[in-house]
Design a binder for these strands. Structure first.
Lengths: 132, 132
DNA sequence: ATCGACCCTGTACCATGCTACAGGGTCAAG
DNA sequence: CTTGACCCTGTAGCATGGTACAGGGTCGAT
């Protein structure tokens, strides 16, 4: 399949073209191949990668954490145990995030329920979510 | 119960003292009462609020979004439908975050499983998580 | 061959969310 | 009544994550 220009990946992923260059500089994207005239040549997978970065950012991961997530893969060498323990640490982080989000959600659901009944049960209902 | 100084709430919540002042300026905390000599006087609930802000930040909410979350409560007036729809929008945001986190987690769990078996099934396994 | 739309590098600038003084007042233990 | 630990209000500076040119080259349709 023929390569995509930076403008095409930017447009297809909804990311600013300057941001694509920025991510390459910051190693969130691999250094792109270049055409004879120096144009960057991307393939389709870059779009997925950019989409992933956007979503991970929305979830509160920093660019450095995202870089680590993207780097996690089983290597042919002996690094397996290392990869596994880093992945398990990320899984624990994610579980924490999910737990906290669920508690926030419960508080908000409770709040909307109170709308149909008597008044509020708390000055700031969402705070109840995080004080078990 | 006697009021807490800014140093006490900062220390108990693990937030920098300057950040507490910053949050007050930015209206993430209500304007604190003042003693005769101008010292801020906080109560215990401020610590919960600061804790909430820290966690919500880790989940990718901006300070403005957090301010909105903290403001959600059932008012005695007729604003109930408004509060309810704002809360429902936040719930939808949270559900999205949870869904994406679950997919990331599944990808990582799969990755750690591959460690015990044959090699990787993908160049960048975590990307599979978000391309259904 | 030329015009508009695109690409390159480099550097500067921006918003968000803090964090760190400077310069000065307050409080309480000894 | 002093001394050290705290508080106050500015205002300045920093890290992160972009975003925006300037100045110049490339590509392809006409």
């Amino acid at each position: 399949m023929k390569p995509l220009t930076i403008g095409q990946v930017a447009q297809k992923s909804g990311v600013n073209i300057e941001t694509v260059r920025f991510y390459e500089r910051e190693a969130l994207l691999p250094k792109a191949d270049r055409s004879a005239s120096g144009y960057r040549q991307f393939d389709e997978s870059t779009i997925d990668r950019l989409t992933f970065i956007q979503r991970a950012k929305e979830l509160g991961f920093t660019l450095n954490e995202i870089k680590e997530l993207l780097a996690l893969r089983v290597e042919p060498s002996s690094r397996c145990a290392d990869v596994k323990s880093r992945a398990e640490a990320k899984i624990a982080d994610i579980d924490d995030k999910i737990r906290t989000l669920r508690r926030m959600k419960n508080a908000l659901v409770k709040l909307t329920g109170e709308c149909d009944g008597r008044g509020s049960t708390s000055e700031c209902p969402i705070l109840d979510a995080l004080n078990p």
